[in-house]
Amino acid sequence: MSGNGNAAATAEENSPKMRVIRVGTRKSQLARIQTDSVVATLKASYPGLQFEIIAMSTTGDKILDTALSKIGEKSLFTKELEHALEKNEVDLVVHSLKDLPTVLPPGFTIGAICKRENPHDAVVFHPKFVGKTLETLPEKSVVGTSSLRRAAQLQRKFPHLEFRSIRGNLNTRLRKLDEQQEFSAIILATAGLQRMGWHNRVGQILHPEECMYAVGQGALGVEVRAKDQDILDLVGVLHDPETLLRCIAERAFLRHLEGGCSVPVAVHTAMKDGQLYLTGGVWSLDGSDSIQETMQATIHVPAQHEDGPEDDPQLVGITARNIPRGPQLAAQNLGISLANLLLSKGAKNILDVARQLNDAH
């Protein structure tokens, strides 16, 4: 009898209710805020589980004197976190989706994509230029951005401005803007500013005609071990179906173009009346040469937790077992079709030249 009692006690200790789920994140304040929001949602869904947040620095956090596009290494903000995932030191990792490459290392998958916040870019102005827009900034004003995508589009749109690289986390960039006289304004992701509670610093939100956004911008991705079915089931509740389908289309477009950090590629997606609209573009580094096109596809946005595919093969690095396969494939095909259209119009040449120029500098 006593033996059975011990077995029952052991089973209770090993039951999922007692389990601590370890969540990996970057150390920056924004990353911690984003991770806290994901953990809060998981806690609400699984009140019996405990969650421990483990923060670590990544290569991208450490190399702050070089433009991201020049470092010449993929997975700048993800490699150390993936290493911890691989060694079973954490069970899942919360990322900004735009930091996750469209091809993940073997053994990993994006197990959830959370509801997207505003994906557009924002302009934050130096205190002396508050009330201005990019259009009304004085001639030769210097605007800071760490992104080739932003610089290429904005140089084309605002030729009277000069664009220079600015690195560091959000706090560091804002301090550089406010305390030094080098920059009249800087460009940042609206979602990051909003998550930090800095709505009052948003001086201008850039519309798609001015600057399309990065693939996955404004959404959070939760990376897990691809074979860890328990954790895949656990994080599945975080999937937002519309965000998922938009981001599958965007990531398929980028992957098929073979774009990345070192080339200016941008997108804009919208879901309306059962249609998914995808606009994508590529630019030369100075913005003088560009190709942009829009395509659409009829896609039914499923309700969360309709029964999805059981075999769960990944699409552009994403596993969404609780979302039907048909809409996911339709979104992926839309991204591939748009990429093929741009490639047929000469996108590869623009991107190759951009890559060579970026590598040469």
Rank of each mutant, 00 (worst) to 15 (best):
E306N: 15
N169Y: 09
N333I: 15
L193V: 05
K345D: 05
E135N: 08
G131F: 10
L238A: 01
I336A: 07
N118R: 11
V23W: 01
L64Y: 14
A347R: 15
L206H: 01
E310W: 03
M56F: 15
F51G: 08
E242P: 14
I187M: 08
Q314A: 04
I231V: 13
K98Q: 01
G280M: 01
V202E: 10
N171L: 12
S75C: 15
G48T: 12
L276N: 01
Q275G: 15
R175Y: 06
Q332R: 11
A360Q: 01
G280A: 14
V237E: 04
Y46K: 10
H126P: 11
L134R: 03
E258K: 14
R325D: 12
L81T: 10
A360R: 06
S284V: 01
P138F: 07
I350P: 01
S28Y: 01
Q356C: 01
A320S: 01
A84F: 11
H300I: 10
V93G: 08
H239F: 01
A151M: 04
Q155M: 11
L30W: 01
L154V: 10
D121I: 01
P324S: 08
K128C: 09
T35E: 01
T145Q: 04
L278K: 01
E162Q: 07
G335V: 01
L49V: 13
L220P: 01
A297W: 11
S290R: 07
V142T: 10
T58F: 01
L193S: 08
S146P: 04
L343E: 07
G317M: 15
K98V: 01
I186V: 11
Y277E: 03
R150M: 06
T172L: 11
V267S: 05
K74M: 03
N200G: 09
I63V: 08
S96P: 04
I323L: 14
G168S: 01
L134K: 01
N88F: 12
H300P: 10
D240M: 04
A303Q: 01
I323N: 09
A67Q: 08
G24V: 08
V38C: 09
K227I: 05
G131S: 11
L285M: 12
I205L: 14
S45K: 15
L170S: 07
I53W: 05
A339G: 15
T109S: 09
M295S: 04
L338F: 01
Q314P: 11
S69F: 08
G192N: 01
G280Y: 01
S141R: 10
L81P: 07
E89P: 01
L92C: 12
P47V: 11
V353P: 08
L81E: 03
A320C: 06
S96Y: 04
S290P: 05
D121N: 04
P105T: 11
R167H: 07
Q29H: 10
H300M: 01
N349G: 11
N340G: 11
E242D: 12
Y213R: 01
K176Q: 13
L161D: 01
Q314E: 14
V265A: 15
L68V: 12
N358G: 04
P208M: 12
M295Y: 15
A31V: 01
E86G: 08
V143G: 04
P302T: 14
R201P: 04
L254Q: 12
E82H: 03
E258P: 06
I63Y: 06
S57Y: 10
D311C: 01
P105G: 12
A249R: 01
L154S: 06
R325V: 03
Q180V: 09
R255K: 06
A189F: 01
V316F: 13
L343S: 06
H160Q: 13
I205R: 07
E80K: 09
G131P: 06
V94D: 03
R22Y: 09
S337E: 05
M295G: 14
R325G: 13
A67K: 15
G221M: 01
D312G: 09
L134D: 01
E86N: 06
A330I: 01
D65H: 10
L170M: 13
T59H: 10
L278C: 12
G60N: 08
S69W: 09
L85K: 03
G203F: 01
L188A: 11
I323K: 03
L254Y: 01
E223N: 11
L232G: 13
Q153E: 05
F158A: 09
R195L: 11
V123C: 07
V215D: 01
V23A: 15
I291T: 09
D99E: 06
A270T: 07
N169A: 06
E306I: 11
F125P: 12
T133P: 05
M271D: 15
I336K: 01
R321S: 12
V39T: 08
K128T: 15
E310R: 13
G335S: 01
E223K: 01
L134M: 10
A226Q: 12
I299C: 15
Q275S: 01
G218Q: 01
L244P: 04
L104F: 10
M271S: 12
Q155R: 11
G259E: 11
V222A: 10
P264Q: 09
Q304T: 07
K227E: 15
R201F: 05
G72W: 06
G287D: 06
Y213D: 01
T319Q: 01
E209F: 15
W198A: 13
K345G: 05
P241W: 14
L170D: 01
K74W: 01
S141M: 13
V237F: 07
L334G: 15
E223I: 03
H268C: 07
R175G: 10
V38A: 08
I21K: 01
